[in-house]
């Protein structure tokens, strides 16, 4: 599989995403934010970082970049797009995912491991996650509090679009397990076509036991499996 990892000027988890994909046996390359084409691509990763410095609002400028126009078209054609952390923020700003990510409720940046409950395995991003498996994955963000209005939330639930929620080690969706105040402990969602997903935690930092956890690989393995089983989308 070929993964395109977007590179905004201040993407800083771009290398990490490339590393994780390659470690798991697939190929990945960086695509510069000024490029209007994604090239030969099976899946796009919008990585973590600070895109354009994010002094205005996380991801607010990135959505206007040439490469994001290509990503939109790729997604419209059914291509798989995964936004991680800042990438999730960029996808919501770009309108590819509903809702918004706002300042953490304690107004502090949080870097720590959290537990994730997979709400549904019915998606290209979760299909390989073993039933009942609680994932231990790091977060690192200052603006990761998922927010959406009532109607959007209701739609997310009705369509089974909530993919991951913060939980304790036994899988309970407690308030203290929620690091940022996200509504309904939401850590990640997908769009209603289920081909675009975003999450605040960093699965690419949890693909090796040497780094403390390899639970993140289940998310990548899900994508590999989905790509194997689905006709390839046409790149823009």
């Amino acid at each position: 599989m070929n993964f395109a990892v977007l590179q905004f000027p201040a993407s800083n988890c771009d290398q990490d995403a490339v590393h994780a994909v390659r470690l798991l046996g697939h190929s990945a390359r960086l695509v510069w934010h000024k490029d209007a084409s994604l090239g030969d691509t099976d899946c796009v990763i919008v990585p973590g970082g600070f895109s354009y410095g994010d002094y205005l609002r996380c991801g607010a400028i990135a959505r206007f970049s040439p490469v994001m126009q290509a990503v939109k078209q790729f997604a419209d054609n059914g291509g798989l797009v995964l936004g991680i952390c800042n990438g999730f923020q960029v996808l919501t700003e770009a309108g590819l995912l509903p809702g918004a990510l706002i300042r953490n409720r304690d107004l502090q940046f949080h870097c720590e491991n959290i537990f994730l409950k997979t709400a549904t395995i019915d998606s290209p991003f979760t299909n390989k996650i073993p039933a009942g498996k609680i994932l231990r994955v790091p977060i690192a963000h200052g603006e990761g509090c998922y927010f959406a209005d009532e109607a959007t939330l209701a739609k997310l639930k009705a369509n089974n679009q909530i993919l991951w929620q913060y939980c304790d080690q036994d899988g309970n969706l407690t308030d203290s397990a929620n690091p940022n105040g996200a509504l309904q402990n939401i850590a990640g969602i997908c769009n209603d076509q289920r081909n675009v997903a975003g999450l605040m935690p960093h699965p690419e930092r949890a693909c090796e036991t040497l780094l403390g956890s390899d639970d993140g690989k289940w998310i990548f393995e899900s994508i590999f499996a989905a790509l194997k089983n689905k006709p390839v989308a046409q790149a823009a």
């Binding site: 590393h19 502090q108 940046f109 949080h110 870097c111 960093h202 930092r205 090796e208 040497l210 780094l211």
Partner: peptide
């Protein structure tokens, strides 16, 4: 240290909170 990103770059083997940090 919770306010510092201590895991970016996929190299942090021993995180803050032990005697010394170890990176790969």
């Amino acid at each position: 240290y919770r306010q510092y990103d201590h895991q970016v770059r996929d190299g942090s083997v021993v995180l803050p909170g032990s005697d010394a940090a170890v990176i790969r």
